[in-house]
Computed example of a mutant assay.
Amino acid sequence: MSLLSRSRSAVLAASAGLLTLASATAAAADASLAAEGDLDGDGVADTITLTAQTEGTEQRLSVTAGGRTHELTMPLGTADGAVRPVRVTDANADGKAEVVVVDSTSDQTNTLVMVDLGADGLRVAATPEGQELRFFEGGGAVSRAGYTCQERIFQGREFTILFAVAQDDSADPSFIGTLASYKVAGGVATPTGQVPIFGVKGDNPQLQVDPAACTP
């Protein structure tokens, strides 16, 4: 697990009442949701369905691509036992989309995972050490979290995760944290660097991320 992941876990365990980012809105709950995206890179939109299982603690992601249906069952940690809308991304601009799935929700903060379609079916993106890459979206008074994609000269598109926490509980606190970047390929999210965030105010550009930058 990366240093960023450990920091996030510690802060989230200690924090309560997180507010959503101004750019994020609470999604309506549902038992089953559908989307489209080209996960196999053949230029044809594939059908994506996310369905809550009966017990409400698991969700099943189903993708029909190239005439075949692939399924992956994942944990579901929402208070109402319902799924949230999937997001179609292209984290490395290779023409093969990934799906960002809400793993769980807590105090209006989402925990997210990224899923792509490999030779053996659907898989959750993991670090080179085999740890599933989980990241957060939310924030406000005590923390800021989200993700974006950045175009790097020579390196191409990188997936970047923001996580920062307030240094105090004042009305205009300063934040410390990191912007952690990854190169995503073959279901593996390889760290490429971390930019420290130290003592910046809430309107600082370092704390602004745009998930739309990852759109295929």
Results as ranks from 00 to 15, higher is better:
Asp210Lys: 04
Pro85Ser: 03
Ala145Tyr: 02
Gly66Pro: 10
Glu151Asn: 12
Gly130Arg: 14
Leu207Arg: 07
Glu98Ser: 01
Gly187Pro: 02
Thr190Met: 02
Asp168Ala: 08
Ser2Ile: 07
Arg68Asn: 13
Arg144Glu: 12
Pro75Thr: 09
Thr89Cys: 08
Ala22Asp: 11
Gly177Trp: 07
Asp120Ala: 08
Met74Lys: 00
Leu117Lys: 02
Pro128Glu: 08
Gln167Leu: 12
Asn92Ser: 11
Val115Trp: 00
Glu137Trp: 00
Leu117Ala: 08
Asp168Pro: 03
Thr57Trp: 03
Glu58Arg: 14
Leu117Thr: 00
Ala26Gly: 13
Leu50Asp: 12
Ala45Thr: 14
Ser2Gln: 12
Ala24Gln: 11
Val113Gln: 14
Pro173Leu: 01
Ala119Gly: 10
Ile153Pro: 09
Ile153Ala: 12
Gln206Ala: 14
Pro191Trp: 04
Pro85Ala: 04
Ser143His: 10
Asn204Arg: 12
Leu33Val: 15
Gln206Met: 12
Lys183Leu: 02
Ala141His: 01
Thr109Ser: 10
Val124Met: 03
Gln167Gly: 09
Gly67Cys: 06
Ala10Ile: 13
Asp107Ser: 15
Ala29His: 08
Asp40Leu: 12
Ala31Val: 05
Thr190Tyr: 02
Gly121Ile: 03
Gly202Ile: 00
Phe136Gly: 02
Asp120Asn: 03
Gln206Trp: 11
Leu122His: 05
Val101Tyr: 06
Pro196Phe: 10
Thr69Cys: 07
Leu207Pro: 04
Asp107Tyr: 00
Gly121Ala: 03
Leu39Thr: 01
Gly186Arg: 09
Arg87Ala: 08
Ala189Phe: 06
Ala27Leu: 06
Thr20Ser: 10
Ser104Tyr: 06
Phe163Asp: 15
Val195Asn: 11
Ile176Leu: 13
Leu18Tyr: 07
Ile161Pro: 05
